[in-house]
Amino acid sequence: MMTANKRIRILLADDEPNILQFLELGLLSEGYEVQTAQNGREALEKVEAFKPHVAILDVMMPEMNGFEVCHTLKESSEKIAVIMLTAKDEVGDRVKGLSLGADDYMAKPFEFEELLARIQARLRNQFPDLLGSVVYGPFRIDDRKNEILYQERVLELSPTEYELLKYLVMNHGAVLSKSLILDRVWGYDFGGENNIVEVYIRSLREKLNDKEHRLIRTLRGAGYRVDLP
């Protein structure tokens, strides 16, 4: 399990109680401080006292929608990272949210592990001093040093190997397709061949002494999955 810094505060705003409870329990189990709101006005009221580092906002909320809340937050403080959630995966909604200052955008349904990765990305970019090293089983990831330790041994990694291994470890237990890995590690505009993923996976296995592929598993036709002890 991840060991997160308990100083990191996250505000969840969604009018669907089941989603709100699921996300709250998941983030609490990861070590974050969490408060929730079921409408836009309540979210803004809680920001005043709670002062979250990250606000996760559903677009379709009563009182004030997520777009309005995002706009208000970004006008008052650039220090709040905003991740928008929506049931729609429409380009127009995404453009509108980003134009209002949202830092990221996720369409429902989504995997909780992906949300965790998006939160970590926002924290690295906007609150790097809050993040110490993060532990996942035998791995310790330290973004301040751009360093990953495996069983307390520092791995000698290229920048791309570092990003790839971090993405795999942070999403441990989830099956990650080659196309998803390319999008997240190399970027949407990557124009090379997707066999580059196989090349880098092979290199990581050598550096991890994972000769039998028990750590980074290949699921034929599906992708890769990191299994942690």
Rank of each mutant, 00 (worst) to 15 (best):
residue 81 A to I: 07
residue 109 P to Q: 13
residue 1 M to R: 10
residue 34 V to M: 08
residue 30 E to L: 14
residue 63 E to A: 15
residue 9 R to I: 00
residue 43 A to S: 04
residue 157 L to R: 02
residue 28 L to W: 02
residue 22 F to V: 15
residue 202 R to N: 15
residue 40 G to S: 08
residue 130 L to Q: 13
residue 228 L to P: 13
residue 207 K to H: 03
residue 88 K to A: 14
residue 144 R to W: 10
residue 207 K to I: 01
residue 72 T to I: 13
residue 86 T to R: 08
residue 135 V to M: 08
residue 221 G to L: 05
residue 49 A to Y: 10
residue 10 I to R: 01
residue 56 I to F: 07
residue 141 I to S: 01
residue 3 T to I: 12
residue 192 G to H: 06
residue 227 D to G: 05
residue 28 L to D: 08
residue 218 T to V: 11
residue 142 D to L: 04
residue 21 Q to T: 13
residue 141 I to L: 12
residue 24 E to A: 12
residue 85 L to K: 07
residue 45 E to M: 11
residue 20 L to T: 04
residue 131 L to G: 01
residue 188 Y to H: 15
residue 73 L to D: 02
residue 79 K to L: 08
residue 41 R to M: 08
residue 13 A to K: 02
residue 207 K to E: 00
residue 121 A to W: 12
residue 77 S to K: 05
residue 87 A to T: 13
residue 214 R to L: 10
residue 1 M to S: 14
residue 25 L to P: 01
residue 125 N to F: 08
residue 155 L to C: 02
residue 85 L to M: 11
residue 70 C to V: 08
residue 136 Y to P: 06
residue 185 V to C: 06
residue 161 E to Q: 14
residue 182 L to N: 04
residue 54 V to T: 04
residue 225 R to P: 03
residue 78 E to S: 14
residue 56 I to W: 04
residue 149 L to P: 00
residue 147 E to C: 12
residue 102 A to P: 05
residue 89 D to K: 10
residue 165 L to C: 04
residue 86 T to K: 09
residue 189 D to Y: 13
residue 163 E to P: 00
residue 63 E to T: 03
residue 132 G to N: 14
residue 109 P to E: 12
residue 64 M to G: 02
residue 125 N to A: 15
residue 142 D to N: 15
residue 146 N to E: 14
residue 189 D to Q: 12
residue 129 D to H: 14
residue 89 D to P: 01
residue 32 Y to M: 00
residue 95 V to W: 02
residue 204 L to Q: 02
residue 57 L to I: 08
residue 14 D to I: 04
residue 4 A to V: 15
residue 172 H to Y: 15
residue 182 L to D: 02
residue 120 Q to H: 14
residue 70 C to N: 07
residue 115 L to A: 05
residue 217 R to G: 01
residue 106 M to S: 07
residue 59 V to N: 04
residue 22 F to H: 12
residue 223 G to N: 01
residue 210 D to C: 02
residue 48 E to D: 11
residue 20 L to Q: 07
residue 21 Q to Y: 10
residue 214 R to N: 13
residue 224 Y to S: 05
residue 6 K to L: 07
residue 113 E to C: 07
residue 50 F to G: 03
residue 32 Y to Q: 02
residue 26 G to C: 07
residue 177 S to D: 03
residue 76 S to K: 15
residue 177 S to K: 06
residue 192 G to E: 11
residue 168 L to M: 10
residue 145 K to F: 11
residue 218 T to L: 10
residue 175 V to N: 08
residue 142 D to E: 13
residue 107 A to D: 09
residue 150 Y to N: 00
residue 98 L to F: 04
residue 24 E to N: 13
residue 115 L to W: 05
residue 25 L to I: 11
residue 173 G to K: 09
residue 190 F to D: 07
residue 99 S to H: 09
